[in-house]
Design a protein around this nucleic acid. Structure first.
Length: 208
DNA sequence: TGCGTGATATTCT
DNA sequence: GAATATCACGCAG
């Protein structure tokens, strides 16, 4: 297990979104909160392909205060708020000024589960299984206390949020259309979502 | 299965 | 400036 930093980190993130989406599966997302490690293994991601992708916030080259982070260097976090109540965490990849990113959709909780449960609201606080703690982009941000303060910060050598690579081990990737992007016309069916096949922590059971 | 909720982009005056 | 439409979801029921 090694923390991604500096040059190695940059190389890791400086790829296209589809590649990074697959590469992120199985790595560990670590949040340091009041000195406590809270972490989970990434089990579900989606690629957003920038200016050409109708489902992306940067479709057509839109560049605003909100999505500015997507134009930053690879390894930057893009955190935004949606539906009036949910934050979502993305990892910027590609090159500077190329607004492509990967949405982190689900984690398998590994450290700090008690804290995660405390941070989560509603039903997940009590009787629900651990697999419900981080099984969705909004849930991850709640469980890891991620909000827009982290927007624009870098995962490379990050002080409070970073990625760790695990020893390679055989995994089986599943691949499907993205979730919640029905409005994106022909882009809504593109198989740009990846997940750890059979993992109970993924957000929605893949449709065929 | 519906619907809340509020930031943001877009579209007006 | 201000009104409005829209949304990478989660939860109650």
């Amino acid at each position: 297990m090694s923390k991604l930093a500096d040059r190695a980190g940059l190389v890791f993130f400086a790829v296209d979104a589809a590649t990074l989406a697959q590469r992120l599966i199985g790595t560990r997302l670590v949040r340091l909160l009041d000195g406590e490690r809270i972490s989970g293994v990434i089990v579900e991601t989606e690629a957003y392909l920038g200016v050409e992708d109708k489902a992306a916030h940067t479709y057509g080259g839109r560049r605003t205060a909100r999505n500015e982070a997507m134009y930053g260097p690879p390894g930057t976090c893009y955190v935004y708020f949606t539906y009036g109540m949910h934050h979502c965490l993305n990892v910027v990849c590609g090159a500077v000024d190329e607004p492509v990113a990967v949405l982190i959709r689900a984690l398998e909780p590994t450290e700090g589960l008690v804290t995660m449960r405390r941070l989560r609201t509603g039903a997940a606080k009590r009787s629900h299984p651990d697999t419900a703690l981080c099984s969705g982009p909004g849930k991850i941000c709640q469980a890891l206390a991620i909000d827009r303060k982290l927007n624009g910060t870098s995962l490379i050598g990050g002080a409070n949020l970073w990625l760790e690579e695990r020893d390679p081990r055989p995994i089986t990737l599943g691949n499907s259309a993205r979730i919640g992007v029905a409005y994106a016309e022909s882009w809504s069916d593109r198989p740009l979502r990846w997940y750890l096949s059979g993992n109970p922590n993924i957000s929605v059971v893949p449709r065929k």
